[in-house]
């Protein structure tokens, strides 16, 4: 049983990277961006004085944070076309491809986590700055987009990036709906060629290196922002 064949990795590397890693990284980047935008909106809603908005945002965030990602992936894979139909008022469910479905799922799921981060970030901006903004005659929208949110983003950047690394790892769960991300590609090769050990060890190594190096960068960034403050 124990015959390592690491040639298989070299041979399939183009497939693993082109089919798998590109999917994983694109999904991570887009979902992180979308999740951050939506998460910031949710955080603003939660902190707003309009009771309905705050209630909705709180409910949404708590709901998402209570569910396992695996369950949410299934939910959305089957449900999103009907939601699309209801929103766009089309006569048939909207066809959503595998990538779009995964992107919607991760964006909506991660938004809950990003919103908690952004809420802490917004609350970290001293109240006096808001008052100063209003005193200058800025509207709520202007105060938020020019004064509060940029600072919240900067204060929270290391946490946001750390959450993005978690997201990067979480994207591997699309395996459960047979979408070919990096792990999916590796596991297809593993099953087809009977090279389980090599492929799974290699996948683990790649995920480790990317996450580890990224977290080192985050730590350095954290040290730098800490000095500026």
């Amino acid at each position: 049983m124990l015959q390592f064949d690491f040639d298989i990795i070299l041979k399939t590397l183009p497939y693993l990277l082109r089919e798998g890693m590109v999917f994983t990284l694109t999904l991570t980047a887009l979902a992180a961006f979308g999740g951050l935008v939506l998460g910031t909106l949710l955080a603003l809603m939660r902190l707003s004085t309009i009771p309905g908005l705050a209630l909705f945002a709180t409910g949404y965030v708590n709901l998402m944070r209570s569910l396992p990602l695996v369950l949410v992936i299934f939910w959305f894979y089957f449900l999103v076309p009907y939601i699309g139909q209801a929103i766009l008022r089309t006569e048939r469910p909207v066809e959503v491809g595998a990538f779009a479905s995964a992107l919607i799922t991760f964006t909506l799921f991660e938004a809950a986590y990003f919103s908690e981060i952004m809420r802490a970030g917004i609350q970290s901006v001293p109240k006096g700055q808001l008052s100063a903004g209003y005193a200058l005659g800025l509207t709520y929208r202007q105060v938020m987009s020019y004064v509060v949110v940029p600072q919240a983003l900067r204060n929270m950047l290391p946490v946001i990036l750390t959450q993005t690394i978690v997201l990067f790892q979480d994207t591997s769960l699309v395996y459960v709906i047979s979408i070919t991300d990096f792990l999916g590609a590796a596991s297809k090769v593993a099953q087809r060629d009977g090279r389980l050990i090599e492929m799974y060890l290699f996948a683990a190594l790649v995920y480790f290196l990317i996450s580890f190096l990224a977290s080192l960068l985050v730590k350095r960034l954290q040290a730098r922002t800490a000095i500026i403050r």
């Binding site: 690394i165 790892q169 979480d170 591997s172 769960l173 395996y175 792990l183 596991s187 799974y200 060890l201 996948a203 683990a204 995920y207 480790f208 996450s211 580890f212 977290s215």
Partner: peptide, 11 residues
């Protein structure tokens, strides 16, 4: 911390 849980379970 740096290997996805799914991959760890496979390992």
């Amino acid at each position: 911390r740096n290997i996805p849980l799914l991959v760890q379970l496979f390992l």
